[in-house]
Design a protein around this nucleic acid. Sequence first.
DNA 1: CCTACCGATCGGTAGG
DNA 2: CCTACCGATCGGTAGG
Lengths: 198, 198
Amino acid sequence: MAPGAVGKSEAKTTVSPAAVRDAALTLFAERGYHGTALSQIAAELKIRTPSLYNHMRAKQDLLRDIVADTTEQVWADYEEAVEGVDDVAERLRNATRVYALRHATHRREALVVNRDIASLEEPARGNVLELRRRHAQAFRGLIEEAGGVDRESATLAAFGILEMCVSIARWFREDGPLTAEEVAAKYSEYALRIAGLA
Amino acid sequence: MAPGAVGKSEAKTTVSPAAVRDAALTLFAERGYHGTALSQIAAELKIRTPSLYNHMRAKQDLLRDIVADTTEQVWADYEEAVEGVDDVAERLRNATRVYALRHATHRREALVVNRDIASLEEPARGNVLELRRRHAQAFRGLIEEAGGVDRESATLAAFGILEMCVSIARWFREDGPLTAEEVAAKYSEYALRIAGLA
DNA sequence: CCTACCGATCGGTAGG
DNA sequence: CCTACCGATCGGTAGG
């Protein structure tokens, strides 16, 4: 490499794997996985489509990483939220609060997870569904244990609470009248009411 | 037409516009609009792709009809549910009940409306969003009028209630432990709790 | 209802 | 990071 021979080799690395993933996240959230072309992701980053392959392996991998990471973080949030909390109503409040909070602070991720799971190939899809099932079961367990509603209703209440939180990703705005924390506090209060504890 | 000359002309009309729409509805609900190819709809009906055009004009028209009709029916449900009901809590209960009920009895339509609205072209998209906004505003109005929560929370509660109902389309099973009517009754009870009326 | 076919675009590769 | 290019598939049309 002769010094100063080619100026081109110096102005590089404007794009990174993280930047590709972020652009994909924005577009998948807006138009869905199948509604987004790699050419659109490339255009967002101001490069040509084939150049994307310096930062990723396949379009499907982008979806898999987004969905798998998000689902794992949701479960980690849950475990941390209930850890060491004795009162079961308080565990339910905390678990709902962090779930609601994540849907306000990570709107794009939530939209993709809830919209494009069908576009995810196996085995990733199975793994994600299993982890989601575990999360929903944990909620149902909390509601049952709290004893505010009968056993049949606990499943119904769990779904209602979880999906109500998911919906936050659809309407929450950072510049809106309420902060993410305020919305999360309200919704965890709604959760207690649905579970017959308030 | 000589009698008995060609047997072919008798065994026709197995496929109709309604059949095409129904097949599209099932596949759009499963894989999304962009995730569904016309060739898959044709295969479902056991015909070739070009034959679809005897029963429709374009793929986009299938989506528009499904989404527009469903949204109009949701609004009609709402108007009928509150008509002539004096007590505002009872209006909220009825409005929630019919909304929840529709999401249990018309799962495919609900999934498509809530997932593929971004794939809908103008002006249909704008019309649908306007009607949905009117429906959400009406709910917020009921909650405000009922006076169980402060004005700020009414918007939050309205979103929570509506999206909780929408979620029914994602988990309800006809052969499950509860009927559509039972689920709708439960969820309209949750709505009153969220609105601070129970 | 079909076969034959259209231009456009898709995700991805070769080879620098 | 690019140009050039690949086979496959898309929605849709022509013409019976």
